[in-house]
Design a binder for these strands. Sequence first.
DNA 1: CGGTGCTTTGAGCATACTCAACATCAGTGG
DNA 2: CCACTGATGTTGAGTATGCTCAAAGCACCG
Lengths: 243, 243
Amino acid sequence: MLQAVHSTQVPLRGPIAAKAAPQTVTVPPRDRLAALAVHRRLRAKETAFYEGDAADALFEVVGGVLKLYKLLPDGRRQITGFAYPGSWVGIGLCDTYAYTAEAVTDVTLIRYPRARLESLYDEVPGLARRILSLTAAELATAQDQMLLLGRKSAMEKIASFLLRLSEQAEERGDDACELSLPMSRTDIGDYLGLTIETTCRVLSQLCRMGVIEMCGRNRIRLRDPDQLADLAEGEALSSASML
Amino acid sequence: MLQAVHSTQVPLRGPIAAKAAPQTVTVPPRDRLAALAVHRRLRAKETAFYEGDAADALFEVVGGVLKLYKLLPDGRRQITGFAYPGSWVGIGLCDTYAYTAEAVTDVTLIRYPRARLESLYDEVPGLARRILSLTAAELATAQDQMLLLGRKSAMEKIASFLLRLSEQAEERGDDACELSLPMSRTDIGDYLGLTIETTCRVLSQLCRMGVIEMCGRNRIRLRDPDQLADLAEGEALSSASML
DNA sequence: CGGTGCTTTGAGCATACTCAACATCAGTGG
DNA sequence: CCACTGATGTTGAGTATGCTCAAAGCACCG
């Protein structure tokens, strides 16, 4: 069973999580993966699993957006990431999930039983490597986020967040200046380590500065992406202090 | 070459990065890995690689402690982790390193050329899985750190940090109450998203509260680990407000 | 001993938080 | 269709936590 190696190459679905090099997996494994897959739908606000649950499955996001978060005993919340189509959720070696996964919008998932998926790691060349690649991309994103959370100001955080959304939109083939924000202001704050009030205030300030424009609650138009990029890295333009 | 599978099992060196289940790899791969390995020594303050360098190798820490950090253009720094013996450094899919790795103490590393290591992933069963396990552990740690950076107070950050060091000491078989802090106060601050002054102040406060005791600059004794655990999760005891 | 680098402590301040009021939107039912 | 309601978002005023700037203490090392 370890022989079945040199067959045609088929690209797996690409990751959202940025810089992952295009990877491939041989065909038969694709089938063996498919044999494990079970589709699952969630309505907005439903959870796929809770932090602390037995981690018996991995999920691939096919449609919609999930938020992944951790809680402190007193209810403070940190969203560790948003999962867009192409993301894998629940990766991590532990036997319990390290975070809760809750649907922001209606969501479609593919569920892979963990034990059976992992038993394929050693049999299906490229599979472990593929998962590794996704995990490594997620790790790189997490490290960027640590820099953001630990060292950036509120303005820099919001600007960085909008820019990342813009890059993702571009990767998806959408207009990089027309952002959709499916998550609430509270969610954005909990992702960036801010309160909802600060999140609102900074967004309003960016509007006043003419850097962005709000088109309804969940839609933002970037009017000056270059200035936004400057703001994201602390190159506070003089106009930043005006107002 | 895909046949050489069922030989005796040998545990690879365990990870510091916590909850990784003990994993094993078959013997021949161990040899193949060893064939790639090159030892390297660093004196304190030397760097193994810089953020942005071509990522042509992975490193396993054998002795000493490294700090891994990212910089903003204006010099603000976020340490994303400390690498103790057993840690692998430089994991991440990118073709450039995502952070700088600098020796805190004198350090001994094993260097694995990345391309050649990765070419073994599909040939050596268990290898990719092993690296995946390490990466996943690092990801879980990173997510904990996001919660800390985004949502914890200075006191909670310091308390959490000391507790994690204590757990690591225990895993290493050392006394869980006798912590060695090889890194400077500045490093601790840059790891926790604090300034050096706040770091000092909180440590002093913990001393005054009788929770810890400082035995020289780089050594701390935990006198009340239970209270420290309470402080780490925001269960601010009344004594916390009494200076 | 005197330097240099790291740490500690103090005083004042700024950023982001808390609390509170109000505005807006989406969904519901009259 | 509009009025009502609850949820979500926005804005303001005051405050607190942690930062900045500054000085002094301490330890290690020639």
